[in-house]
Design a protein around this nucleic acid. Structure first.
Lengths: 207, 207
DNA sequence: TATGCACTACACTGTGCAGTGTACATACGC
DNA sequence: GCGTATGTACACTGCACAGTGTAGTGCATA
């Protein structure tokens, strides 16, 4: 279909986006099973038939929603700078992760992934690609470089990276997923995590 | 109803237990919404009518399942000893938490809590009462005592406890909930966590 | 203004499921 | 063995929902 229209998006494209918007809102709020196609149509101010003209089945619409969330969540993830002292770099990673995890859309996505990973096992890759891999991968690469350069005593970079993130996510992120309050200020959590990490690793490797 | 029978459990009690057993198996495996009362009745080798004679609604049955899981999960949680060196105590807590988290029943329960905490907000208290509170509470109490006695430099016991558990659960527990493999051996994760923790806190508080 | 495409309204099918009603069978206490 | 408790078989209601079919409306482009 060639775009001859002046506006970037055709009427069809706009309706489609309305539908995915509505579906995202509802799925993230109440889960896949709890939402009917009728409610999605109403929320999108569209006819049910239009919804089915764009997406043949509810599953197909769900996958489209998750796929779009995938890119949206990745786009929003700030990549921390790796200049400065070790403490500054670690703080940068920690702050990026906190900012990432605090987004309601990310939290709702993770909840959805956990809830639906029996029915839709493929969507697990989203958590991996959009959350775990970029963060842990980048930090552990940096840790490995610092260790090779003799500036940090890290022997197992991927484990060290996971444990660092764990000491931040455990008080700030996971309780929220279960509907519990978080008890500690992000700033304090981050400072503690950085201090603990450097108390162990913040010296050259013994040769 | 007074028990005049020689056996501890009446026929009614046994059927009821069969039903809760079956419901637990199915709910934990596929979630609340995906399981019908017909399937529960079949799995329990009971008539559907019998199921409804014991539990007026599906919700009531679900609550009974979660309630029983609550006590089952609590019973299974070994309480670590608090004698010996700090490293030994920490290792004891870590091993207890790993053993607890590794149980398929606990993992399935947490998945259920996360998946259904929109529909059933009360069940969140189970995770808190059966997992987080006993573990974090006991460790942070012990840390506070050690700090008061001048043996550890812990300033914020509840945060320190959470961060310690986080450095263990992040590599070993949470990925499993999302259908990902865990990459590290529990023994190595625990040793690393203890070493990191003591590198920071394993000295008297500066007065 | 004419043409065609996308959206709408709405009625409809079929299915699965929560929950009920009833007539009958079986176990258990006495 | 008798009577009540409890379980079973099964048919049934009502509803919500996924998905379809159709006739008609509105809107963008030529």
């Amino acid at each position: 279909m060639i775009e001859t229209c002046m506006s970037t998006f055709s009427r069809s494209d706009r309706k489609r986006a309305d539908i995915v918007d509505a579906a995202e809102r509802l799925f993230l709020g109440e889960g896949y099973g709890a939402i009917s196609m009728d409610r999605i149509a109403a929320e999108a101010a569209a006819s049910k038939r239009t919804v089915y003209n764009h997406f043949a089945t509810k599953e197909e619409l769900f996958r489209a929603v998750v796929e779009r969330l995938y890119t949206a969540v990745l786009d929003g993830a700030a990549v921390p700078a790796v200049g400065g002292t070790a403490a500054e770099v670690l703080r940068g990673f920690a702050e990026a992760v906190v900012a990432h995890m605090t987004r309601p859309r990310f939290q709702a996505l993770i909840r959805l992934v956990i809830a639906e990973n029996v029915r839709f096992p493929e969507i697990t890759s989203i958590y991996f690609a959009a959350g775990k891999e970029p963060a842990v991968g980048r930090l552990s690469t940096w840790l490995a470089e610092e260790a090779r350069a003799g500036r940090l005593a890290v022997d197992n970079p991927t484990l060290a990276a996971q444990q660092f993130f764990g000491s931040i996510k455990e008080p700030l992120f996971w309780p929220r997923l279960l509907g519990l309050e978080t008890l500690h200020e992000p700033g304090i959590v981050i400072e503690n995590a950085v201090t603990i990490f450097l108390a162990r690793y913040g010296r050259p490797l013994i040769p």
